[in-house]
């Protein structure tokens, strides 16, 4: 790396093109990751809830 941080941030005058690319790529990939993680958590919670209600419904009969 040569020069100052200011020079580096300037990207040889192409800052307006280089940085948005990294920003947008980061945002899109992180967004897809968070969306996937949330849907996994959501489904796991739904499964837990369902299993719990089934358990509760069974217990009065003494099946569980």
């Amino acid at each position: 790396m040569q020069g100052s941080i200011g020079e580096w941030l300037d990207m040889g005058g192409y800052a307006a093109y280089v940085w948005p690319v990294y920003g947008i790529a980061f945002a899109v990939l992180i967004g897809a990751f968070i969306h996937s993680l949330r849907s996994l958590r959501g489904e796991e919670a739904a499964l837990d809830n369902l299993l719990r209600t089934i358990q509760l419904e069974r217990e009065p009969d003494g099946e569980a």
Partner: peptide, 13 residues
């Protein structure tokens, strides 16, 4: 892998 696990769990639900 995250998405596949979510999908398999959704299938169980």
């Amino acid at each position: 892998l995250l998405r596949m696990r979510a999908e398999v769990t959704a299938g169980k639900v």
